[in-house]
Design a protein around this nucleic acid. Sequence first.
DNA 1: AATGAATGAGATTTCATTCAT
DNA 2: GATGAATGAAATCTCATTCAT
Lengths: 206, 206, 206, 206
Amino acid sequence: MNRRSGIDSKSNILNAALKIFSEYGYRGASMRMIAHNAKISVGGLYIHFKNKEELCLTLMKKRLGDLSQELKKALEGVKNPVEAITLFITINLEYAKRHKELILTQSKERGFTFGLGLKRSFFKKQRTLIEEILKKGIDSGDFSECDVKETTKIIMGTLRGFVLSMVVDAYNLFTPEECSKLILYGLLRRNDKPANEKTNEFKGRS
Amino acid sequence: MNRRSGIDSKSNILNAALKIFSEYGYRGASMRMIAHNAKISVGGLYIHFKNKEELCLTLMKKRLGDLSQELKKALEGVKNPVEAITLFITINLEYAKRHKELILTQSKERGFTFGLGLKRSFFKKQRTLIEEILKKGIDSGDFSECDVKETTKIIMGTLRGFVLSMVVDAYNLFTPEECSKLILYGLLRRNDKPANEKTNEFKGRS
Amino acid sequence: MNRRSGIDSKSNILNAALKIFSEYGYRGASMRMIAHNAKISVGGLYIHFKNKEELCLTLMKKRLGDLSQELKKALEGVKNPVEAITLFITINLEYAKRHKELILTQSKERGFTFGLGLKRSFFKKQRTLIEEILKKGIDSGDFSECDVKETTKIIMGTLRGFVLSMVVDAYNLFTPEECSKLILYGLLRRNDKPANEKTNEFKGRS
Amino acid sequence: MNRRSGIDSKSNILNAALKIFSEYGYRGASMRMIAHNAKISVGGLYIHFKNKEELCLTLMKKRLGDLSQELKKALEGVKNPVEAITLFITINLEYAKRHKELILTQSKERGFTFGLGLKRSFFKKQRTLIEEILKKGIDSGDFSECDVKETTKIIMGTLRGFVLSMVVDAYNLFTPEECSKLILYGLLRRNDKPANEKTNEFKGRS
DNA sequence: AATGAATGAGATTTCATTCAT
DNA sequence: GATGAATGAAATCTCATTCAT
């Protein structure tokens, strides 16, 4: 009914699409549902997006970009590597909790997993971020010596695991704090600690 | 075609369904594809299963049952709790790797998440299993004192994370061994260790 | 409603498709129209044909095959090359008049003219047929010496022209006889004729 | 963009429409494509033309008018009827080759064949043109006596055939010269000729 | 006059499910 | 039990046309 500007419409559609894709998954979400949610006609969607795939892709790009941005901003002034890792984990988990969304979308339509490249490049960026934090932490003496690449992989995997677990199983097993502790625990130097103070912080581990 | 017995037909269909659901997801898989793969007619499917949902449900039940069975058998004679946890993790990951499948299926058809109850009860069983191992390990002195419930939750979550990470991202970030080490490391008593032997097993931590 | 055998249905659909495509062209014909005409559901069409394009292609193949068959049969016992050419032309025109149809279909969907190969190979067959008749006619002395290839091209082009003219313009400008005369006239030897008898057969060309 | 005068805009649109209609046919061409090609907005098209049909009709009118004009101009000073017929044919074929276009458009939208009347009247004009040339040629003794109406019909049909053949089949079977020869050959008086000179001009005939 | 977002009707296509054979 | 043609609803997508700006 009321004519919107192109940009308004686009972001309006993206919001609706996010809601619907998140709730029903890529195949479960229909263009009709998205259009309805965006209070637009179905045909209208196709003015702004070539097809369902492109709509979904745009959405993913935007989300991953947003998260990247958020991470970058948050980590900007942080010097302490422990704090940095904690922030990194917390922001990732908070973001996932806030949006519970396109994290899965792994449709095999037409034999090709679209959006894969997008994710890959995003994960690569994240890996680099962690590697840098780790290196600084080792240099500063906050973290013990370790194979940076390998450790990064493990941190990423564990974090990814928590995120997925949260989204797929809809269990709230972990608070970001708990998750941070699990990961940080091993990274922290323990040689000089009285071995009871910090350890006790984290039940279930030693 | 050669006539099969009812039971043969059923398991034949289930095998086909597993293959197709695994590859294309619940919505991406069509009854036609499953029938074709099972070398049976489309109508034939409906003789053995009320509908697509029931077929999928039966499949999930069977899969979870199989895994339960496998776990039970493997853990039967095992006394050492460290070995038990390692086995538990390894079998879970190997199973997931072997089947890369119904792990996701979270379709919201007609507004209701089917299969959820199934999963819940399976996870409960698994939780009980771990709890028992933990208790034994604590009693035997292999594991340090800890909140059993909480620790179980963390182990489950981390494992679940690794499984999902493997299935969704199609990365092979972790070998079952690495995963086991990550989880076990914290569970093992460390008070009496010279701090170099066992610790060094696991790079990137300590 | 009443279940038909697969073969019945297929030819039933092809008949309907012929009618609709002929009348409305490839783009003008809708699957709905074809389904309606075939007294079948729209979805039913897709049991027998992968898509609109394949349906149209099958139809063209069948038509060109039919005409080939008819020509072959008709020319089988014919020795006299004049009669052969006359038959060739007459059958082509009669066929076109009878079916007024897929002769045009030159859709440029997705940037590629489908059915082109089909037509090309059909025209090649026709060319060979004419060339053989011409050769025999020259050998027997019925036709004057001429460049067989070139003459074939001209005959084909003129005939094709008449066919198209008939179909596109919906004028009945020519009877097959008139068309035959136009083409034959030049082919016939005239050196020994009194030059007035046969010539007068064909008004406007004395 | 730079504002055009109304007339400029109109002819600009017509040029774009010609290009698009020619390449994709009436149904295959979309208003969006035409607008894009004309570097104008979709709405802009509707300022100058009531709808798609009218745009197409206008285009056809213009084209047929152009051709009429060209023919008229070319034939103006020509006295020799042989030359006149040759010109007539050549211009027609050249024009068709240059534009490969609306010649087919035979859409039956909403059950009514638009543009038919337009074509009919154009063909009528052309017929008159040929008839006049023929009459002059007979009077001057260049052409043999013949039924003018009938001969005109055959010339028109053959020419039309060549044009269609060229457009539809996208074969370049004929040069305008060959086509002219085919048609002219029969029209020329032959009673006084040595019967070898002119005859030999045209291979495959005589 | 000009724009281009929006509409709404209709096109092609897919698919779980049914049912005559 | 078994088949697979048929259905009908719904999905994705297209497009001539309109209209607020």
